[in-house]
Amino acid sequence: MIRAVAIDDEPKAIKVIEHHLLKIKNIDLIAHFNNAENALIFLKQNPIDLIFLDINMPNKSGLEMLKELKLKPHVIFTTAYAEFALESYNHDAIDYLLKPFEFERFLIAIQKVKRRINSQNNLNTYFFLKDGFKNFKIEYDSILFIKGSGNYLDVVTKEKIYSSRMTFLEIIEKLPSTQFIRIHQSYIINIKNTSKIENNQVSIESYKIPISGNYKDLFLNCINN
């Protein structure tokens, strides 16, 4: 499931995106915002695959917002201004939709997103994690969950636990967002290895991991779509 966010100061523009997405499988619009400031707060704490982003917004433009975002999802610009097209591709935008756009043109942009995500997912099945003075190769599928522990993160795998001095934002950059999701201020889980969800907690092998109220709706929305 591709997790998406729409950012536009025009409510009608958000409605158009929502309407088009109802006709497309495997994309979930989990949130929308009418300004870049609130969107930034959300995006810095939640792994997202795709942003539908307006450019010309009050206070902070879409392009200015992207410059502040360290972890950049895939971007489809949605704007009424053609003159921003060249600059938008400096941000590696997947597509640039001029308002008003019909469903057929919108679908072409979505197909580009799916091709790029599929291509990236097929490239790597692992990443390297520093634990002490050594770097270990960690297969994504071997990870059960990740827990914050002071200034360190404990990466709990099927074989052992690795401890690395890094932040959640740094580890999120290394993980495929379609497989890993944050369910608590202190936990990221591997959806593939989740066996049960019950009583505000997730079961992964013998572990019971809490789901916090701040992340519950987002988590349940993702797994139910």
Rank of each mutant, 00 (worst) to 15 (best):
Y89I: 11
H20Y: 09
K160Y: 11
S88D: 13
K99C: 15
D9H: 09
D154Q: 12
P11M: 10
Y126N: 12
I110W: 00
N46K: 03
K160A: 08
I7L: 02
L98F: 10
K192G: 13
P58M: 03
L175C: 15
I223Y: 09
N35R: 00
Y152C: 14
F84P: 02
L169K: 15
L69K: 12
A80F: 04
I204M: 05
L107G: 13
C222T: 13
E87M: 06
D9F: 04
I223R: 10
H74R: 13
I41L: 07
V156N: 00
Y96W: 05
R116F: 05
Q185C: 14
L175M: 02
D49E: 12
G148V: 02
K15A: 11
F33N: 00
P176T: 14
S149H: 15
L66Y: 00
N224F: 14
A109F: 14
V113R: 09
E10Y: 03
F101V: 11
Y126V: 15
R165P: 09
V16T: 15
P11E: 15
A6R: 01
S142D: 03
G132H: 13
N225Y: 06
I76C: 02
S186F: 06
A13F: 05
K130Y: 04
I117A: 12
P176C: 11
F103V: 09
E37R: 01
F136D: 12
N135P: 03
I171R: 05
L220M: 11
I223E: 15
A6V: 02
K112L: 09
K216Q: 02
A80L: 15
T79G: 14
S195I: 04
V202A: 13
R165G: 10
L43K: 00
E104C: 05
I55N: 12
Q179A: 14
K192C: 07
L53V: 06
K216F: 05
N190T: 10
V156L: 07
Y152T: 00
K60V: 02
Q201S: 13
I146N: 04
I189W: 10
K23N: 12
I2P: 07
H20R: 02
D8H: 07
L21M: 11
M57Y: 07
I17F: 10
L63C: 05
L123I: 11
K112P: 03
N124Y: 15
Q45R: 07
Q179G: 03
D141K: 05
K192P: 01
N46T: 05
